[in-house]
Design a protein around this nucleic acid. Structure first.
Lengths: 247, 247
DNA sequence: TCGAATTTGTGCGTATGTATC
DNA sequence: GGATACATACGCACAAATTCG
């Protein structure tokens, strides 16, 4: 039994990419080219290219061509027990500074009600009022990470920290903000999963469809949960490092 | 502009799956059915189904049909600072017991030499001798997790713990074994990434191609690294929980 | 045990629309 | 506007796996 033609062609291109004969940004031969070069039909070349797209090697721009993807260098996000030690700064900005990059973000907040999942994570009743804040994190002006955070309004309503990103504690991070209203955070729980990227996330992060993201469900708590967030991290931009003391 | 037909069809099926009209194990209409029902060609139905397969909603069995995937219930692996507190047992068995499941494993060890990546993680020179052990972890007899571990032979050669899974400390876990040869482990670093499953992994874990796995690069160290491992965890079986004390 | 029907996987030639340069 | 390239679609063919009588 012989290899299907589309696999052979995909294989040859893949090899050229991994050993550098085709570098990031280079144009891959068009479907016509590939078909002619290998003596097969257009249709077969389509399948070959489609495979490489789904594997993340190349990216097709309609009307223009197919290009080898820029593989952004993978940076490491350290999420350890010694985070935020004595700093009054946001964890994200600190992470970016450690990499010599400018970390900023956009955000928008609105009041909302707790969905079943959020209610369980915050330990409140379904439908209870919460402040929902969506973040887009930028490294050197480029969106690199998304997050949606929920805080129980029962805790923050009427305090200076009700809006996470305005007032005296804007940008200070959850732990510092909660300390300002006498809520001591002692524990962060991060539940890590991964899934395929969603269309709107791909759009915002400039990732191709089919990319993989890790989702961190982070919950800060003291006597009870004070904030929970879904953090969406593309795997081709970041890896997560957890440092765990043993015994 | 109107939606492409194959997206419309995929969307309709996806909706039927998420709202339960098509339950796990149910058979999805065949290509012919779909094509006739939607008044399109065979080829279009193929594309629609292919998309759902790549998204993990359904699974095609050649010659038989296409079926809605069993979503195994997701279990949580807690990987926190208080792990292995006073226990002389393996972390995996403890995790499984916490879920009321029988945790066992198969393994095979062989001497090998350090690849560049492994050498860096272990802090040894490229080509140095290491003991490589491959694990297949089973929960209730079912393979659910894979791991490959490397230990520098410079540390363990000639000691009773040279082979991780035989001798007096078999199955005791890395920390206990290393303690037996005066190597105190104080830190575990876990670097989490995710990627598409590889063919041989899919085969062994009974996952379909296209499934997503998380890869944990775990390194145990005291004064220096004593063991490093790549742990492959399918996302539809497990989520990872890290608990982090704050300040 | 055998064979027919069904279903998926793959290959191919072609046509049309649309985005980009 | 024209040339190029990708996206989608149609129709047909055959191999391999599975099912079932």
């Amino acid at each position: 039994m012989t290899q299907p033609a589309y696999l052979r062609i995909a294989d040859e291109l893949r090899r050229q990419i991994v050993d550098g004969r085709l570098g990031p940004g280079d144009r891959v031969p068009s479907r016509h080219q590939l078909a002619r070069d290998h003596g097969v039909s257009d249709r077969v070349a389509v399948e070959a290219v489609r495979l490489l797209v789904s594997e993340g090697y190349v990216e097709s721009r309609s009307g223009s061509g197919t290009y080898v993807r820029q593989r952004p260098t993978v940076k490491r996000l350290t999420r350890s027990w010694y985070r935020a030690h004595g700093r009054a700064d946001s964890p994200f900005r600190a992470d970016m500074e450690a990499q010599g990059r400018a970390g900023t973000w956009r955000s928008s907040s609105e009041t909302s009600t707790a969905t079943p999942a959020v209610a369980e994570r915050l330990g409140v009743a379904e439908g209870d009022p919460v402040m929902r804040t969506r973040y887009t994190f930028l490294a050197d002006e480029q969106p690199v990470m998304l997050s949606t955070s929920w805080e129980p309004l029962a805790l923050t309503r009427g305090t200076p920290v009700m809006l996470p990103e305005s007032g005296p504690y804007a940008g200070a991070g959850v732990v510092a903000r909660m300390r300002a209203i006498e809520q001591t955070v002692t524990l962060a729980s991060e539940i890590v999963t991964a899934r395929a990227i969603l269309a709107d996330e791909a759009d915002e992060l400039g990732e191709p469809m089919g990319a993989i993201v890790m989702v961190i469900q982070r919950t800060y708590s003291g006597d009870h949960p004070v904030e929970t967030a879904d953090i969406v991290v593309p795997v081709d931009r970041y890896e997560l490092e957890y440092v765990i003391p043993v015994d």
